[in-house]
Simulated scan of single mutants.
Amino acid sequence: MSEDANGGRSERDPADQPPVVVKIGGAKAVDPAGAVGDVATLAADGRAVVVVHGGSTVVDEVIERLGMEPEYVESASGVTGRFTDGETMEAFTMAMAGKLNTELTALFREAGVDAVGLSGVDGGLLSGPRKSAVRVVEDGKKKIRRGEHSGKIESVNADLLEGLLADGYTPVASPPMEGKESDGGVTPVNADADRAAAAVAGALDADLVLLTDVAGVYADPDDPGTLIESASTPEELAAVESAAEGFMGKKVMAAKEALSGGSGRVVVSDANVDDPIVAALGGAGTTIEHTAIVEQAETEGETA
């Protein structure tokens, strides 16, 4: 334990710092090796870490192996996402909870991390109402598609995570989530992994690191030289939101949800650099501070 001049624990002591939730992207271009090594280092130093992972690429591969075609739809708000019918949901569960979660947990254990793999259904880790129908835009027309298996996370079993962390384990979590039916039933359903990580980070008052295959949010999405390094005011956050396109828009949305839920800061950063998590926590990538949300809420309250 490190001590400061007054004999107390140093602010740099990992055990004194908030937990960190690390979201590892599921794109093929994301190499988890650096993140695995960093989690091992942080956990060995006493920092509480929760890992959340995605897996869109592998899900698509499993769907295709089963002779189906991945289907993506545009929502009424302009966001593109996977349409998850019953057969697709089976493939999703096989890929995420069966294959990816097990393989990633094995990588962490090989690195000396006492990792525990969990799906969002386990212990009601991630739960909320199931959406069985979604509004989509097809050929410029708004339609309702039924048979959907997705949900909005409304609760996180923080006690489960805190209990595992207190016992020295590192949770490795992924969708599916626990979808609650109107009749009281429970159905495993799809949930966005970035937003799942955001919900976990908010519930634990944790720092959130969203690892992806680019350096962060660019002011010009086509120019890596325009990286936005930080946002700590509503105006700076608005600039980040304006610049974020495509998949990056979902990450910024997740960042706002995490900060609103209680996270102190969110970093969007490159998974493929050396020591990616340590680098992100040290200032690499795009850091969005809690003050950007707090000041925004205060400003909205004044104008209401």
Rank of each mutant, 00 (worst) to 15 (best):
A284I: 00
A173T: 13
S232D: 05
E87H: 15
L164M: 15
D4N: 15
E241M: 04
R12F: 15
R145A: 01
G202C: 09
V62P: 00
E295P: 12
L118K: 01
G249E: 10
D275I: 08
A5Y: 14
V189R: 02
V294A: 12
G81K: 05
H53Y: 09
K180E: 08
P221E: 06
N157F: 15
D114S: 04
E162N: 15
A158C: 10
V36T: 01
P70T: 05
Y218W: 10
E241Y: 00
G246D: 07
S56Y: 07
V59Y: 09
E90S: 03
G282T: 11
T212S: 13
K180L: 05
P19M: 08
G124R: 07
A219Y: 11
M96H: 02
I63K: 00
T226R: 04
M1F: 13
V156D: 07
E61Y: 11
V59G: 00
Y169L: 13
E181K: 08
L164V: 10
T187S: 13
L237H: 03
V50M: 09
A243K: 01
E235G: 03
A133C: 10
D45T: 01
L165Y: 11
K141G: 00
Y72S: 04
L211S: 05
T226K: 08
E69N: 11
E148M: 12
K23D: 11
G81I: 01
G147M: 11
A215T: 13
V30I: 14
H53E: 03
G81N: 03
T93R: 02
D192Y: 05
N190L: 06
D274V: 09
L227T: 10
A27L: 09
T80G: 11
E148P: 02
P234M: 06
G246K: 03
V79L: 09
A133V: 10
M94P: 02
H290R: 13
A44V: 01
L66M: 14
G81Q: 06
E236G: 03
V294Y: 02
P70R: 01
L104H: 08
R135A: 12
T57M: 09
V39I: 11
L208H: 06
A76N: 04
E298R: 15
E229S: 08
Y72M: 11
A254G: 12
I63H: 02
K28S: 05
V268P: 14
R82E: 13
G140Q: 14
E300M: 15
G54P: 06
L237K: 00
P171H: 12
D31H: 09
D220F: 14
R195C: 10
L118G: 03
N157A: 14
A15Q: 10
V267G: 07
T105G: 03
A271M: 03
L161K: 06
